[in-house]
């Protein structure tokens, strides 16, 4: 009964929030801005980011600060929404998945800084507003100087065991892609376990599909980039992939990883379930195409989904996509990228 009520409440709240999203006219206006200050000013005065940006000084804002504030706002929205999701421990555990992505990302940033021997640079990027919700003390990452120190911080968390094998390596030799793959595998497995063990029904299948498609698209990006830019071997590529697929059989995956170059890989994708989105003759960046796939899937789930968690996950993905669009515009303006090029990068 609690779930039924909360399902209605959460879905209604999400639809209300989704209604305030940036529209095409907003993107048109943002694309016409000449500086980051103008973008910030527009977001502050004309969009739902006004409360998140109310204290900023538009004339002096840094693009990193702008991104940080709107991401912080997304987390605030997420926190508000999960209040409608019931009080059971299982649901609370499930909602933690949103934070796990941030945690993995912070651990990897910390490892990179250990390699660069610059611990102070970590501090500025720390999302301390999540301090009380994270599974370890994020502030402690500021004082980590070596990998042993990092493990000490991660002790007792789900990340400790996957990270342990990398302890013996010297800072310069830490296999960051391998570590990232291990950590993301932990994240994916945990989320899928939670969905499979604690839920049932047709929306569960949709939820699994959303997560597994997300991971599959990440894998596709990794394969393409590994082949196109790093020319890695099949074995090495397989090591950095997360072993979760939903639209490709193991045989197809093996062929894509071992037997194809990047052109053949794109061609295979253009004949797969993603053929609507990937056309080798009209190819931009692999990320733009995978984001569009994700965007359409999430929009469909948001509108037609019955399970509040499915709707929530779709909303968060779409909101994340919106933030990435803003970041693309800001970066484009900063580096004087032509307006039409920026426009092609936007997913909407």
């Amino acid at each position: 009964m609690e779930l039924a009520y909360s399902a209605n409440a959460m879905s209604a709240k999400i639809m209300a929030m989704f209604g305030k999203r940036l529209r095409d006219s907003d993107y048109e206006s943002l694309l016409n801005k000449k500086s980051i200050g103008e973008v910030a000013s527009y977001l502050k005065s004309q969009t739902y980011f006004s409360s998140a940006l109310k204290d900023i000084n538009e004339s002096a804002i840094h693009r990193g600060q702008l991104e940080s504030l709107i991401r912080q706002d997304l987390y605030a929205r997420f926190s508000r929404l999960i209040r409608y999701g019931g009080r059971s421990e299982a649901r609370r555990e499930f909602y933690h998945y949103g934070l796990m992505e941030v945690e993995v990302s912070q651990i990897l940033s910390c490892v990179n800084l250990i390699r660069n021997q610059d611990s102070t640079a970590m501090i500025a990027k720390l999302p301390l507003f999540l301090k009380h919700h994270a599974s370890f003390d994020l502030a402690n990452l500021a004082n980590v100087n070596d990998f042993a120190g990092l493990l000490k911080v991660l002790q007792g968390t789900d990340y400790y065991q996957p990270a342990l094998p990398y302890l013996s390596q010297s800072p310069e030799d830490i296999d960051v892609p391998g570590l990232e793959s291990s950590l993301r595998s932990v994240f994916c497995q945990k989320v899928l376990d939670m969905i499979i063990k604690k839920r049932k029904g047709k929306d569960t299948k949709a939820l699994i599909k959303v997560f597994s498609t997300q991971i599959e698209l990440e894998n596709i990006v990794k394969i393409y980039r590994a082949k196109k830019y790093f020319h890695l071997s099949g074995e090495r590529i397989e090591e950095v992939l997360t072993p979760v697929w939903c639209n490709f059989s193991p045989k197809q995956v093996h062929q894509m990883v071992y037997d194809m170059d990047e052109t053949q890989f794109l061609d295979a994708l253009s004949h797969s379930v993603y053929r609507r989105y990937i056309d080798p003759n009209n190819f931009l960046y692999i990320e733009v195409h995978t984001k569009k796939i994700s965007y359409d899937l999430n929009t469909h789930n948001l509108i037609y989904g019955q399970d509040p968690d499915l709707v929530l996950q779709s909303y968060l993905s779409l909101a994340e996509s919106e933030i990435e669009n803003i970041v693309d515009i800001v970066e484009g303006i900063r580096y004087h990228v032509p307006q039409d090029v920026i426009e092609r990068l936007l997913v909407r």
Binding site: N57, I123, L126, F129, A139, A142, N143
Partner: peptide, 16 residues
């Protein structure tokens, strides 16, 4: 100058 609240809280993490 000015610092936002999140950044201000991080100042205590610089211990050198």
């Amino acid at each position: 100058g000015r610092l936002n609240h999140q950044s201000f809280k991080k100042l205590s993490l610089y211990t050198d």
